[in-house]
Amino acid sequence: MLLTMTKKSAKAPAKKPAAKAAPAPKAAPKAESSKVAKTQLVEMVADKTGLTKKQSEEAVSAMLDVIVGAIKGGQSVGLPGLGTLSVKATAARTGVRPGTSEKIQIPAGKKVAFKVASTLKGNL
């Protein structure tokens, strides 16, 4: 089989090399995240107090357990300089199911509310 080229195809303009897309920037390790994890909190407590990481982990866990227990018991928890965690009752209400627009009844319940301390709010 013989392939012949015509003048038109022989003089076809050369294709420009496609501009290479800039390589996606590598996800740099986050030096500072917007969220402090429990392990980071434990490390900060250990650095600030001079406790070992194991002792500070026990202290942080104990504090969180006490706070959660108090909230489950319906009590408010005041954290000086930070704010107050409290339990608020929510009223029953009518909602709309997404997608079907069907009206549904949402029962009354409880939620955890947080009120920021005025000293912290003023310093933000």
Rank of each mutant, 00 (worst) to 15 (best):
P107N: 06
A108T: 01
A22S: 07
G74Q: 05
L85N: 07
D47R: 10
A27K: 13
A22Y: 02
S9Q: 14
K8M: 05
F114Y: 11
M5Q: 04
I106F: 07
Q55G: 00
G69K: 10
V96S: 08
A31F: 05
V68L: 10
A31T: 11
E32D: 14
T90N: 03
G95M: 13
V87C: 00
K88E: 05
M63D: 05
T39G: 14
P98Q: 08
K54V: 15
L120I: 12
I71E: 03
G74R: 02
S34D: 13
V87P: 01
L64P: 09
R97A: 15
R93G: 02
G78M: 10
K88Y: 02
D65K: 09
P107Y: 02
M1D: 08
L64N: 06
K20R: 13
V96R: 13
L85R: 01
K35D: 13
A19P: 08
S61V: 14
G109H: 02
T84G: 01
A91S: 13
V96K: 11
P98V: 12
S118G: 09
K48N: 13
A91W: 00
I67Y: 03
K53H: 09
P80S: 13
G78Y: 11
G69A: 12
K26N: 10
E102R: 08
K30Y: 00
E43Y: 07
Q105K: 15
T119N: 07
V87E: 01
F114H: 10
A89M: 00
N123D: 14
E57M: 10
T100D: 11
T119W: 00
K110G: 04
E32V: 14
P23S: 15
A70N: 07
A31K: 11
I106P: 03
Q105D: 15
A89S: 13
